[in-house]
């Protein structure tokens, strides 16, 4: 149990560093800014309490905000998906006993279901994030373009990472 928490903490730090040091500097056509850390929040085990998940989402978002100079933007979006993830797990996850702990992945969900599950949460996260960044719906076309293009990029990275986990 303790080794699991330690391992998750290390992965948490890794995701934060990859996000702020690498992905925040990526720029394609002025529109694409992927947020891979979403993957950490949506692949936590299902026996984690929903309150704990909310706090982890808030903490992760806030840390990334501090590094990106965007206070509250990531925190808001990641708390939202931390709230929505368990609801989506009920829809897309395997229908088994509630006592079984499930870690969302290609193996436990099957590839198609997992991609749909991740895509919905990534789209929600990116849309809310860019909506806050622009601060109004008058730029709706820019917001939707940024959401769409960045989500494609985030999803590609998620699929690559999950494939590696699956193979192992």
């Amino acid at each position: 149990m303790i080794s699991f928490v330690l391992k998750q903490t290390a992965i948490f730090i890794l995701y934060v560093l990859v996000q702020v040091l690498v992905l925040n500097n990526i720029l394609f056509f002025g529109y694409i800014n992927p947020y891979l850390y979403v993957l950490f929040l949506i692949t936590l085990p299902s026996n984690l309490s929903r309150s704990a998940l909310l706090f982890i989402g808030f903490g992760m978002g806030l840390i990334i905000d501090v590094f990106s100079g965007t206070p509250g933007y990531n925190a808001f979006a990641s708390v939202l998906i931390a709230y929505a993830a368990p609801l989506m797990q009920k829809t897309f996850g395997p229908r088994e006993d509630h006592d079984v702990t499930i870690i969302p992945s290609f193996k436990s969900y099957r590839v198609g279901m997992f991609i749909q599950y991740a895509l919905i949460l990534v789209l929600i996260h990116h849309f809310v994030f860019f909506l806050i960044e622009y601060g109004s719906v008058t730029h709706i076309v820019s917001i939707l373009t940024k959401t769409g293009l960045s989500a494609i990029f985030t999803m590609l990275m998620i699929i690559v990472i999950e494939t590696f986990k699956f193979r192992r």
Partner: peptide, 20 residues
């Protein structure tokens, strides 16, 4: 309680956004 915690955290985030 989960829903209220969710609301509290979202409001905290929004306060940060607005202050910024």
């Amino acid at each position: 309680r989960v829903f209220f915690l969710f609301l509290a955290l979202e409001i905290t985030s929004l306060v940060l956004v607005v202050q910024h």
